[in-house]
Design a protein around this nucleic acid. Structure first.
Length: 717
RNA sequence: GAGCGAUUAGCUCAGCUGGUAGAGCGCUACAUUGACAUUGUAGAGGUCACAAGUUCAAGUCUUGUAUCGCUCACCA
């Protein structure tokens, strides 16, 4: 008997589970089957032609680097949903792609240029574009390899890149349509300017940093004004005070003063306006419309002249006279010194703390500048989106994020979509003198195309539409709207609202029904992962060391929607042990059932029935948990069942029955065990696809409804 | 400055519509050629941040306080 068992256990089970020995081959098996593509599933009769659809558009990882822990969570959660629904017989599409990530990629590339002692300025536009293109293509393939390593079951035949010609054309057409509909306008506004990378930025591409700096008080005629930026004050000719400020009651609105200023006498005018804050400093300020949004708006209100003080490189212009050509940091102390010598410096507050706006990607201090740019008018689109939310056309799974989302939507400013970089989709607008035309091809001789490109979010905002081939392709009518948008909470403003706005605007329908935000992956102490702290865990490296399945489990368990999750190697290691536990459970079960004939009829004992009922209960709870996006509970549930119920209790108590003389009882129990095993493998497959499929491949075909577990039928109760 | 969240066993966290606390890891003891030491069995460990309130009954609802964290914001 012992010898018989030895020969029927596949040899593979005799040594511990070694993930790296199986994963690549298993992925190849899946990919070769063609079943990542729903059309192939229909062709082979695995999925019914009229089955419900389940579609997820992959948030395109930026085509400029490797996958990080954030992607790990992201991809794992989506792949679980996809595998689950595929096994349930839905027409399931996971559509992959990558994003050119305009400014970010160009930033990465410019660093590379810098190392080589080169600069993009002065480079030919087409040459620069081509070089970045080659650079991105190289990195793109790395990213695709990483996705495969994570076991992501996406349909590679539908792979989309944001700069491929049909996508570019679609995005440009949207621009033209929006311009015609009055949702896009070109206007001179005070925008965020990055003087180092020489491009404008939208609000969401900037961030604030609290800094303690000097705050200066200067005598400005009869007033004392405060400023943290003396270098912008050369051309300030208007003082603003609050109309109710008693300190300035004796002065009149529009009263003029002859005063001595940095570079000599000037004529200044008093404005009384409520924007002035009486609590702030002396309650009096001068305005610099070209370099401040508030001041710019005030200048527009009173039709004041505006003048540029700082150039596009961040250097002072001739208006600064002796300081012209100087960088701000260099000029500031000299200007203060000069004012001090003139007796105009009243006081310096050394500990003034305020928020400084920085470029989110490069941490360069942003300089407000007035510039002609293209803007998307947000009011109509935001309202459209909020209406859809109110009408429950889509829902945000976490209440907290819904609040945040609403608040942002209600307060969103017009969106600057032009960028002064080459890496992106060129804006299809043409200029001839003061004339403007928006169309995809040149209107004729004498017309110059706008050199600017779109903000990345202008194209990725249309991602669900363009990937599915809006408006004419069949995929669009089949899979739009998609089921769920699962993405990082950091995209609650950047990406999600834009997809909703574009989707609703162009099709009248939301692009997805549910929005699932996952939190950030933190290190084991709950700190942000960052290269400088050296606490970064790469999903690919973790997968190589502990197995991809273990890594996936670590990303899912205890990771409820909306909250951040600490991750440690210990956690991953725990699930590596679990892979091996499952491996040994299989070894024991298969060995114990080697002489079992799956065709014979059996009579279950009361205990057998109880075991099967328990199994059923697990099936239904795992199913409903995933259905309600509680993957974190489902994963724990199936883990707990397999280890502490199936292995610790069922298998242990079965040992006696399996070695007993009661042939009927033994055969029935064997049937029960094989049932528990195959059902467990199915339930666990979405979470731990590799080890479950590896085992499945070694099971006798009589126990399988499909030769690939990936497309086996999800158990029902 | 505003908003939001968190505070439960040493660590990381579950505890849905209120009824006298749970999981994983860790720890302790014991077991070991018997599917698996990437193991099993047993066990220790918490006045659920603090204060007040509602209730027959409160981690669970209300209010306030404290600490931590996140996000947003045109403060000269």
């Amino acid at each position: 008997m012992e010898e018989h068992k030895q020969t029927t256990i596949p040899e593979i089970f005799l040594t511990p589970y070694e993930a790296s020995a199986h994963e690549a081959a298993i992925y190849q098996l899946w990919e070769k089957s063609g079943y990542f593509n729903p059309d192939t599933c229909i062709r082979d009769g695995i999925t019914k032609k009229d089955a419900d659809t389940f579609a997820i558009i992959m948030p395109p990882p930026n085509a400029n680097g490797r996958l990080h822990a954030g992607h790990g969570t992201d991809m794992t959660l989506k792949d679980i949903l996809i595998r689950f629904n595929r096994m349930r017989g839905k027409r399931t599409l996971f559509l992959p792609g990558s994003d050119h990530a305009g400014f970010e990629t160009q930033g990465v590339f410019e660093k590379k240029l810098q190392k080589e002692g080169r600069s993009r300025f002065g480079m030919d536009r087409d040459q620069l574009y081509q070089e970045i293109y080659d650079f991105v293509m190289e990195n793109k393939s790395v990213m695709e390899t990483d996705l495969r390593a994570l076991g992501v079951s996406c349909d590679w035949s539908r792979y989309t890149f944001t700069l491929q010609p049909d996508i570019v054309e679609r995005v440009q057409k949207t621009f033209v349509k929006m311009y015609e509909d009055g949702l896009i306008y070109r206007g001179k506004r005070c925008i965020h300017w990055n003087p180092k990378f020489k491009t404008s930025l939208s609000d969401i591409e900037t961030m604030f940093e609290d800094r303690v700096e000097k705050f200066y008080y200067f005598q400005y005629g009869p007033f004392v004004i405060g400023t943290s930026r003396p270098e912008t004050k050369f051309a300030d000719k208007y003082i603003v005070v609050h109309p109710d400020d008693p300190r300035y009651a004796t002065y009149k609105h529009l009263q003029e003063f002859e005063i001595d200023w940095i570079n000599g006498p000037i004529k200044a005018t008093l404005l009384k306006d409520e924007v002035a804050d009486m609590e702030k400093g002396t309650g009096a300020m001068t305005i610099t419309p070209w370099h401040s949004q508030v001041d710019f708006e005030l200048a527009q209100k009173y039709h004041l002249p505006i003048e540029q003080i700082i150039d596009w490189d961040g250097k002072l212009l001739p208006v600064a006279e002796e300081f012209a050509g100087m960088k701000i940091e260099q000029a500031r102390p000299l200007i203060v010194q000069k004012l001090k010598e003139k007796g105009l410096l009243v006081e310096i507050d050394e500990k003034y703390s305020h928020a400084v706006r920085l470029c989110e990607r490069t941490s360069v201090v942003v300089e407000p500048q007035v510039k002609d740019q293209w803007f998307v008018r947000m009011d109509t689109l935001a309202k459209m989106t909020l209406n859809a939310l109110d009408a429950k056309k889509f829902r945000i799974l976490t209440e907290r994020h819904e609040k945040i989302f609403r608040h942002w939507m209600e307060n969103s400013q017009d969106w600057n979509i032009s960028r002064q970089i080459v890496w992106g989709i060129r804006i299809p607008a043409w200029f001839k003198g003061d004339e403007i035309k928006t169309q995809l091809t040149s209107p004729g001789t004498g017309w110059e195309q706008d050199p600017d490109t779109f903000d990345t979010w202008f194209s990725s905002g249309q991602w669900p539409l363009v990937t599915l081939g809006y408006p004419e392709k069949e995929d669009f009518s089949t899979y739009y709207p998609t089921n769920v948008m699962e993405t990082g909470a950091d995209l609650v403003f950047k990406w999600v609202p834009r997809m909703l706005m574009f989707g609703l605007y162009l099709t009248g329908e939301v692009p997805f029904k549910d929005v699932y935000f996952h939190g950030m992956v933190l290190d084991k102490h709950g700190k942000k992962m960052s290269k400088s702290k050296g606490n970064v865990l790469s999903p690919v490296d973790l997968g190589a060391e502990f197995g991809t399945d273990a890594t996936r489990m670590a990303f899912v368990v205890a990771n409820p929607p909306g909250s951040d999750m600490p991750l440690s190697e210990d956690k991953v290691r725990a699930y590596k042990k679990f892979s091996n536990k499952l491996w040994n459970i299989t070894r024991f079960t298969v060995a114990s059932c080697a002489d079992h004939d799956p065709e014979t009829s059996v009579t279950f004992s009361a205990r057998d029935q109880e075991i099967l009922a328990d199994l059923s209960a697990v099936v239904s709870s795992v199913t409903s948990d995933i259905d309600s996006y509680k993957m974190y509970l489902a994963a724990e549930n199936i883990y707990h069942y397999i280890w502490h119920e199936f292995a610790d209790k069922v298998l242990e108590e079965s040992k006696e029955i399996l070695s007993s003389e009661d042939e009927n009882a033994k055969v029935a129990r064997q049937r029960v065990l094989m049932n528990c095993l195959t059902t467990s493998l199915k339930l666990l497959h979405p979470f731990m696809p590799f080890v479950t499929e590896t085992i499945w491949q070694k099971l006798e075909s009589a126990y399988k409804d499909q030769s690939l577990l990936m497309v086996a039928k999800w158990p029902t109760t």
